[in-house]
């Protein structure tokens, strides 16, 4: 579904992503793990159109995404939930969700699905997004991304600032998403255990390069991965 080939991304003169190649197939959940500053956010932001790549190809369902604007890419079915969430703080939960479906009219079925995944949102429909807690904002951000009925959902460190219980809850929701089969999930994560538990396959990104790739189970049992990310000596 998503194919990224030899992606190079630079901030000004400094190249931070050096020839990254990976793919995400329909119906999968894929994790990109790596420590802080590895380049995960850069990669995702480039795929969703917020950043321009220096070179390389990004293809989504055989349509090239390179050079397209972020809103165009969103309308093509690629939804991105950034770590900073970028919600509309002065607007209510309901309107934040509604705008997720733009330019289409929000489908009541979609609303129902989002409420099913995140019941807490339903209780707070009139609340302003800016006044919600970190966990609630995260739910809202994912919910908003789902309102457009995307084919690919990309999340950048969804557990940022979340207490462990909430982080687990978030991943349970993601698991349900994946199981329901409508959405393909790509997660960039520093909190490796949760990510590998959810994912079918994974990539290890460090210093702007893919260092390892493979099935999530294999990665979980890989001694280097264990040492670097799972705190197992």
């Amino acid at each position: 579904m998503l194919r990224v080939e030899d992606l190079h991304v630079a901030y000004g003169e400094t190249e931070v992503v050096h020839g990254v190649t990976f793919r995400v197939d329909a119906g999968e959940a894929v994790a990109i793990i790596g420590s802080n500053g590895a380049g995960k956010t850069t990669v995702l932001r480039t795929v969703c159109g917020l950043l321009a790549a220096r070179s390389g190809r990004v293809e989504f369902e055989d349509v090239s995404l390179t050079g397209r604007s972020a809103d165009r890419i969103a309308r093509l079915g690629v939804a991105y939930v950034p770590a900073e969430r970028h919600l509309f703080p002065g607007m209510s939960v309901a309107i934040n969700l509604e705008l997720g479906a733009y330019p289409k009219k929000p489908d009541p079925e979609r609303f129902a699905y989002v409420y099913e995944l995140f019941p807490r949102l339903k209780d707070r429909l009139a609340q302003l997004a800016g006044t919600m807690s970190g966990g609630e904002q995260q739910m809202l951000a994912v919910g908003r991304a789902l309102m457009a009925g995307p084919k690919l959902l990309m999340l950048d460190e969804p557990t940022t600032g979340l207490a462990p219980i909430l982080a687990e809850e978030a991943y349970r929701a993601l698991a349900q998403l994946r199981d329901d089969g409508d959405v393909t999930v790509l997660v960039a994560e520093q909190q490796v255990p949760l990510a590998l538990e959810l994912a079918d396959r994974g990539y290890v990104l460090e210093d702007g390069r893919i260092q390892l790739e493979g099935r999530a189970d294999d990665l979980e049992h890989n001694p280097d991965v264990q040492r670097a990310y799972l705190g197992i000596a």
Binding site: D71, R72, A74, Y80, H86, P103
Partner: peptide, 9 residues
């Protein structure tokens, strides 16, 4: 940015 991610140009 949030607006762009919602598909607003």
């Amino acid at each position: 940015v949030g607006a762009q991610l919602c598909g607003i140009n």
